[in-house]
């Protein structure tokens, strides 16, 4: 505790270097936080879609009710479905009207005859979607089959891209942070060269001399990570209505406060490690004790 107090006192004596180092760390971990949230968010959306495996089968107008019922029975007999719901032309119109209630122009021109009959099939497992799709598409009475498979593929592709981009971007920023920490602590060592030499001559161990620099590196990291998480928290709080609006039925808000605590703990730990390793490199490079 005493050492931390002493380190803080030293930081206050040259606040601009300390600020530069902490801000570099903040930027790195702020960007990291954004990528982490994008990846977690992408996963939530993916899970939401995968947990609602639905296939919508639209029939052409030539299909009669018996043929629709036969296909429905056929699908049910696979044992892969959870629920199958028939949607008549009238029900389709009701759904259409509900979705477009704010646009009278669209409502005026559409009648039940324009809309196809369909069955909504809930599948037990996402993996079974393909089998159901193949089965229904084979029927001559089916006009179109909509599945979430394409959407999932698209999302997985996006998530992978975000992960890769994030990795490259964060690695670059991390390297810059490392260099700034090495530079700032190297300057500190240069400023305190005389003190270091006196301490060595009065019997200080190398660890005793090096420890404040390690604490300093760790403090930059923890401070940077804290600023970053605070910023992310405020931004998410501020933009949560817009984000929720964009995501529609996928509920992500309110975010559990524990998430921010875990994010802070993980980032503070990672940032402290970056600071300590940076300090170690600076000490190895610049601290020559005789």
């Amino acid at each position: 505790m005493n050492q931390i107090k002493k380190t803080v006192k030293l930081l206050r004596r040259s606040p601009y270097q300390a600020l530069a180092a902490a801000l570099a760390m903040s930027l790195t971990f702020f960007v990291s936080s954004i990528f982490i949230i994008l990846i977690i968010g992408g996963q939530i959306v993916l899970n939401y879609i995968e947990q609602r495996p639905e296939v919508i089968v639209f029939f052409n107008d030539e299909a009669n009710q018996t043929e629709i019922d036969d296909l429905t029975a056929n699908v049910r007999s696979t044992g892969l479905t959870k629920e199958i719901k028939f949607v008549s032309k009238e029900e389709a119109l009701a759904i259409y009207r509900e979705r477009n209630k704010d646009d009278p122009l669209l409502l005026e021109s559409v009648t039940a005859d324009f809309l196809p009959r369909s069955i909504d099939i809930s599948v037990n497992r996402a993996a079974d979607i393909k089998q159901i799709t193949d089965l229904t598409q084979a029927s001559e009475h089916v006009d179109k089959v909509i599945t979430p498979e394409n959407l999932v593929e698209q999302l997985v592709k996006w998530t992978k891209t975000i992960r890769l981009g994030g990795l490259v971007f964060v690695s670059t920023l991390l390297s810059v942070s490392f260099l700034i920490i090495i530079m700032v602590i190297g300057m500190r060592i240069a400023i305190r060269r005389e003190e270091v030499s006196i301490m060595s001559l009065v019997g200080a161990t190398k660890w005793y001399i090096a420890r404040p620099f390690f604490i300093e590196g760790a403090l930059y990291g923890i401070l940077g990570a804290s600023i970053s998480v605070l910023l992310i928290y405020v931004l998410l709080l501020f933009y949560s209505p817009q984000i929720q609006n964009f995501l529609g039925d996928i509920r992500v808000f309110p975010i559990n406060p524990l998430f921010f605590l875990y994010l802070w703990a993980a980032e503070a730990l990672a940032a402290a490690l970056v600071g300590i390793i940076g300090a170690a490199i600076a000490l190895y490079r610049y601290l020559k004790i005789r």
Binding site: S200, L201, V202, G203, A204, T205, K206
Partner: peptide, 13 residues
């Protein structure tokens, strides 16, 4: 090197 501090603690300069 790692024991030098013990010597220096016994010598004032």
């Amino acid at each position: 090197e790692n024991k030098l501090h013990i010597l220096r603690r016994r010598i004032g300069t």
